[in-house]
Simulated scan of single mutants.
Amino acid sequence: MKNWSFSRKRIESFISLLAVALVFGGLTVGRLDIGTINAMGPGFFPIVLSVALAGLAFVILLQPDADAEPSSLGDLRPFLAVVGGVVLFALAIRHIGLFPTTALAVITAATGNKDFSWPGVIVLGLCAGALCTLIFVYGLSLPIPAFRSPL
């Protein structure tokens, strides 16, 4: 039988994620129409995210202990790269369209990994941009331009 031991950090992460999932899921169920899979209401996506967040909380709690070194707060490169990618996406989507914005945001976020390679990151960004454009612009017909001139 496996001896389960949970670190304080893991338990705090679990409680925090689960609390956020339950609060937002509870607020959504009480106030917004969820609808069905074919006719999604305004509460459908928040419920799906709440369930996914609760699932992530359990994954974090139940993951096996790794023998890796704990990460230090000294290396901010990954954090800054991901936040930079999100901020870039938010600022650029209206000006240059979905495809280039997604590609640039993914490329920016991927530079947080110290072992990234430019060719691989560029291909990843272009593929993510193409996939998002196909899904959201052409598949779901969202009113987001695929490309837009910044001029």
Rank of each mutant, 00 (worst) to 15 (best):
P70V: 09
G25H: 07
R31A: 08
G25A: 13
G30M: 06
F116E: 03
L98Q: 04
L91D: 08
G30V: 04
L104A: 08
E69Y: 02
G84T: 10
T28P: 04
S117P: 00
T102C: 02
D67C: 10
A81G: 09
T108S: 10
F99A: 14
L88F: 04
G26A: 10
S117Q: 10
N113Y: 11
I96M: 10
T36N: 00
N113A: 13
F89W: 02
L73Q: 10
I47A: 08
T36S: 05
G112K: 11
F116M: 02
V23M: 08
L98N: 08
I60L: 11
T101K: 05
T111V: 06
E12G: 15
H95K: 11
L17Q: 01
L22P: 06
I93C: 03
L32Q: 04
L80V: 06
V86L: 05
A21C: 09
K114P: 15
V20D: 00
T101A: 03
F24K: 02
P100S: 07
F58Q: 08
I122A: 09
L61E: 10
R94E: 10
L73N: 14
P70F: 13
V121G: 10
A92E: 00
I96H: 03
V86C: 00
L98V: 07
D65T: 15
F44Q: 07
S72N: 10
A54L: 01
G43R: 11
G26L: 06
F89T: 00
I122S: 13
L49M: 12
V23N: 10
P70W: 11
G74A: 08
L18R: 03
L88I: 05
E69I: 08
Q63Y: 14
V87G: 06
L104G: 09
L18I: 15
V48P: 01
V48C: 06
D65R: 15
P42M: 04
G35S: 12
A68T: 15
L17C: 08
T102Q: 00
A92Y: 04
A68M: 12
V59K: 03
G74E: 14
G35K: 01
A103C: 05
S71W: 15
I11G: 12
T101R: 05
L98K: 01
P100L: 07
G120V: 11
A110C: 06
D65L: 15
L88T: 06
G26I: 06
L73Y: 12
N38F: 14
L17W: 05
R94Q: 14
I93F: 04
L73I: 11
V59C: 12
K114C: 11
G41D: 06
F99N: 07
F44L: 05
A109P: 14
G25N: 07
I60H: 03
I47E: 01
V20S: 09
N113M: 14
P78F: 02
A103Y: 00
V23S: 01
F24V: 01
P42L: 05
